[in-house]
């Protein structure tokens, strides 16, 4: 029932993008998103399109996986397109006019521009989530937030990262557990499908209470286990897998800087 649910959407394969340092990937993603918004015209946007497409090709993730992502946001895309078409009324070339609805060429172009922007945002974010495991992402966030320790927030950063790691670790466990509890209560004749909203919420109690109880029990056990292994926060803790940036990280960053410069120039010139 819940087994189809997976957190994140890591696609297990080996590609250049998979092997990039997650910190670089995360920062690069942030800058790419920023520059998608910096684009002033179609020429600049075209450059970003090419960039995203190349990233998708390099990731070796099948295109149907990306299409699946786009399917989810299709309603938002359609909605944005329609709103833009209807609200942009300037421009001389009127394509279509009926009652209070006027669609101009400018409106259509503006709508296309917005739609491409949204698609690019989704696709480039998907490149990151398909090629980076949640654990790698957490490590990257912890590492990137390290400078906060100069503000005396070092321990906080470590705690947050540890919390994220633990919750990611327990999602599959608790999903399994939920399945089991649902089956057990169904075996006692629990009816989870029929009835109105109020009775449906009530029917969830036999599942939520044992689940909460077991989550707390597991947390307690985990705390004991961490205690037994002398865990005492982030101070003096070393890592088994250190993140070390390599040539490919610097090369991709250089390429990105060139593309970004081109985007700015193209935006000014045309």
């Amino acid at each position: 029932m819940l087994s189809s649910f997976t957190l994140g959407q890591y696609y297990n394969t080996t590609s250049v993008i998979h092997r990039l340092d997650p910190r670089f990937k995360l920062l690069q993603l942030i800058f790419i998103i920023a520059f998608i918004f910096v684009c002033k015209n179609f020429f600049a946007l075209f450059l970003m399109c090419a960039l995203v497409l190349i990233a998708m090709l390099l990731s070796k993730v099948p295109f149907r996986m990306y299409l699946r992502n786009l399917k989810v946001i299709l309603p938002i895309v359609v909605f944005t397109a329609i709103l833009n078409m209807l609200y942009v009324n300037q421009g001389e070339v009127v394509l279509f006019s009926w009652w209070i609805i006027t669609v101009t060429l400018d409106g259509v172009l503006k709508a296309a521009f917005m739609v491409i922007r949204i698609l690019l945002l989704i696709l480039i974010s998907a490149v990151l989530t398909y090629t980076t495991t949640p654990t790698e992402l957490t490590d990257a966030i912890e590492s990137l937030l390290k400078p906060l320790k100069f503000l005396g927030l070092g321990e906080l950063v470590h705690t947050l990262a540890m919390m994220m790691t633990i919750s990611l670790r327990f999602i599959p466990t608790l999903t399994d557990e939920t399945d089991k509890i649902i089956s057990a209560q169904k075996a006692r004749g629990a009816d989870l499908e029929s009835g109105n909203i109020l009775s449906k919420i009530k029917a969830l109690l036999p599942i939520l209470i044992p689940l909460l109880f077991s989550a707390i029990r597991r947390a307690d056990d985990l705390a004991d286990a961490m205690d037994c292994r002398c865990y005492s926060g982030g101070k003096g803790r070393t890592r088994m897998k250190k993140l070390v940036p390599g040539a490919k990280d610097y090369i991709t960053t250089t390429i990105l800087i060139v593309v970004f410069a081109a985007v700015i120039v193209v935006g000014k010139v045309f």
């Binding site: 509890i181 057990a184 075996a187 109690l205 077991s214």
Partner: peptide, 28 residues
């Protein structure tokens, strides 16, 4: 049919949820 074929899962104690033992046994 689930009332006629009673299934006790592994570690069934993790399915208890009511405030009292009485209410929990009464669930089925």
């Amino acid at each position: 049919k689930r009332f006629r074929v009673g299934l006790v899962f592994q570690y069934p104690e993790y399915q208890l949820f009511e405030e009292t033992v009485y209410k929990d046994i009464a669930f089925g």
